[in-house]
Amino acid sequence: MRARAIFAAQLTFTLLVAAFLIVPAVQSMLAGVTANYFRGIRSGLTLQWVQQVWQLYADTILRSFVIALATLGVTLVVGVPAAYGLHLRGGRLSRVVEEIITLPLAIPGLAIALALLLTYGGLSSFRRSWLFIMVGHVVFTLPFMVRSVLAIFAATDVKTLDESAASLGASPLRRFRDVIVPNARPGILAGSLMVVTLSLGEFNLTWMLHTPLTKTLPVGLADSYASMRLEIASAYTLVFFVMIVPLLVAMQIFAGYRNDPAGRHQ
């Protein structure tokens, strides 16, 4: 009897907590397809707000994806060789460099943005292009790429693999391509998904760095909350969900792929 009462209490508590978290999300998405939010669902369901969002903000959505992919490109080109170098060299200097790369995580995005503006704000054509935002995103996401690749390097004794490829005559570049990158693939994949999702959702930095012509998805979202009907902002959230959920699913699939040893075979 007592055990059942405890179970019931636990279940109720769990459901309440779950509802506390889920209800706002559902409510927000519902608001995006409700004809008039203040009159509630009774006013009817509509896709007109979603259409309006698309008309008003399609460019921000596209731009966000361009910036996210460009950020990914830069973090791959910079981050993977950096992790390789840091791992091979080792020692105290490498740890210090690793800490410096990680530092932007501890500094508020606004401060980083301010520093970028103070330093490069004068280069007006750079300042006005989306590349300016991308630089901010690279500073913010690079540690995630470097750390996730470093973790794989530490787990696979990549140093001996590198030495063994070298003993067979492979130049550093060849070793990197043939042995290091293929064996770091799980880490590179995990880091890539992290970088893309973080870049897509980044607001702090981007809000400071953007111009009216270089809004990204989250900045557009803030803009719509501030200046549009609540239904449009909600519809925007809905669009954001639709964009981000496939990414999270992709992440899950890749995580499964990583655990499957056949996945490492070319």
Binding site: T160, L161, E163, A165, V179, N183, R185, R264, Q266
Partner: peptide, 10 residues
């Protein structure tokens, strides 16, 4: 090498 260091990707 003592650990053989065979390439896991090949």
């Amino acid at each position: 090498f003592q650990s053989y260091a065979l390439f896991p990707n090949m």
